[in-house]
């Protein structure tokens, strides 16, 4: 899932302060699940902004609604009526949703209320961790299911650097050394031989170095 968190209020205020009415648009997808931009957060953000402009004695109106996903055209188009009523849209979706809204509503400002952080998993209630680097060519079968691309601070593919100490990364003692995790995992799978295999340099053109990517699934297209 895509994990995001709300931008500082101050930053959001600066985006929307030139408008008198906005649509705070929640998204029922990943950002709902990561508690950043579902209906609840959208409503809370709307109240916060109204309170701010009330204090500033500026006219400011909000409409709040949430759609199933902001990354599907059908859902995005379903809010045309609400969008027409306001000066601008404040989206609590990830960067995808914000862009998709903007693409679909050419005459409107669509602002991001969130900082989109990473593709990750829910570690425990209220804590999320990064797990996927979206590199385009998965090598998890070689590393025992621990991704060196995103979980090693340096994205090293052939073992740890000298900064690996007591299983922790030199960047921060809160970060596990990915190569320690890989070692432990391969050991428990009785497959330490894999670790000796030299990985050739990664083909980063399959990642976003090759420019924006697109996936096409031909058999469903008609």
């Amino acid at each position: 899932m895509i994990v995001a968190e709300r931008k500082p209020i101050e930053e959001i205020i600066k985006m929307v302060e030139k408008h008198e009415s906005i649509l705070v648009l929640g998204c029922g997808g990943c950002v709902t699940v990561c508690l950043a931009g579902g209906e609840k957060e959208a409503e809370q953000l709307a109240t916060t902004l109204r309170l701010y402009f009330q204090k500033e004695n500026k006219p400011f109106k909000t409409i709040t609604t949430t759609i199933t996903r902001q990354c599907d055209p059908e859902y995005v188009k379903s809010v045309a009526e609400e969008v027409a009523k306001v000066d601008a849209v404040l989206s609590t979706a990830c960067g995808v949703g914000v862009q998709f809204m903007a693409e679909n509503y050419p005459g409107k400002w669509v602002y991001p209320a969130l900082n989109t952080k990473f593709a990750g998993a829910n570690l425990e209630l209220g804590v999320w961790g990064e797990r996927c680097g979206l590199c385009g060519e998965c090598i998890l079968h070689l590393t025992g299911g621990v991704c060196p691309v995103i979980r090693c601070s340096k994205s090293l593919l052939n073992g740890p650097c000298g900064g690996s100490q007591n299983g922790k990364c030199e960047v921060s003692s809160e970060i596990d050394c990915a190569w320690q995790l890989i070692y432990d995992r391969l050991k428990s799978l009785n497959s330490l031989d894999l670790i000796l295999k030299i990985q050739p340099p990664k083909d980063w053109s399959k990642a976003r170095d090759g420019g924006p990517r697109k996936v096409v699934k031909e058999e469903v297209r008609l």
Binding site: P8, I9, E10, I13, T48, L51, Y52, K55
Partner: peptide
Amino acid sequence: KILREIGYDK
């Protein structure tokens, strides 16, 4: 915290 962030001291 939110009230503080938006400077709402009333």
